[in-house]
């Protein structure tokens, strides 16, 4: 088997899996009938359609273009880790440590995702953004955000 587009090959398989997963999941709910469609009717149909579309993407990846073309390419692991990690960190720490502590740490953590990271800029940015966000969201818009650690 010769793969012509790596990106389509992988994404086609993913779509087929997701579509089938939804379709199979939908069988847990009553399908109903055309006259009285149940909760499983719409998701089952959609799941099948998605799987078919995934199939089209998949088979086309075997046909068009030069061999082994359209590679997936290098994954930016560092950016992926820092960005996703800092969001999860923020979600986890905000209710526990409060805004004043978790927010600046999150910004420094996020900044590490960039290729031009320097501690000076990141810390400066963290201070500015924390003060700004405090003024806008907490002092100005009085949003309900925990400020200080929960154990204090």
């Amino acid at each position: 088997m010769k793969i012509k587009s790596q990106r389509d090959f992988v994404s086609g398989i993913m779509l087929i899996v997701i579509g089938l997963a939804f379709a199979i999941g939908a069988t847990n709910y009553s399908f109903g009938s055309n006259i009285r469609p149940g909760p499983g009717y719409f998701p089952f149909g959609l799941g099948i359609i998605l799987a078919i579309l995934g199939g089209v993407v998949f088979f086309r990846s075997l046909r068009s273009g030069p061999e082994n073309g359209d590679p997936i390419g290098r994954m930016p692991w560092r950016a992926l880790f820092c960005v996703v990690g800092s969001i999860v960190f923020f979600g986890f720490c905000l209710p526990r440590l409060g805004f004043i502590i978790s927010f600046p740490i999150m910004i420094v953590f996020t900044s590490m995702a960039g290729q031009e990271f320097t501690w000076r800029d990141a810390l400066l940015n963290a201070v500015i953004l924390t003060v700004m966000s405090y003024l806008i969201f907490i002092a100005g818009l009085s949003l309900n955000i925990p400020l200080w650690p929960a154990f204090l």
Partner: peptide, 24 residues
Amino acid sequence: PYRFLFPAIMAFCAIGVYTLSNNT
């Protein structure tokens, strides 16, 4: 420069998502 912008965007969006329903 972008190195100042993207943490700001991240920060504002994170606050935005959290305050949708104050739910982590």
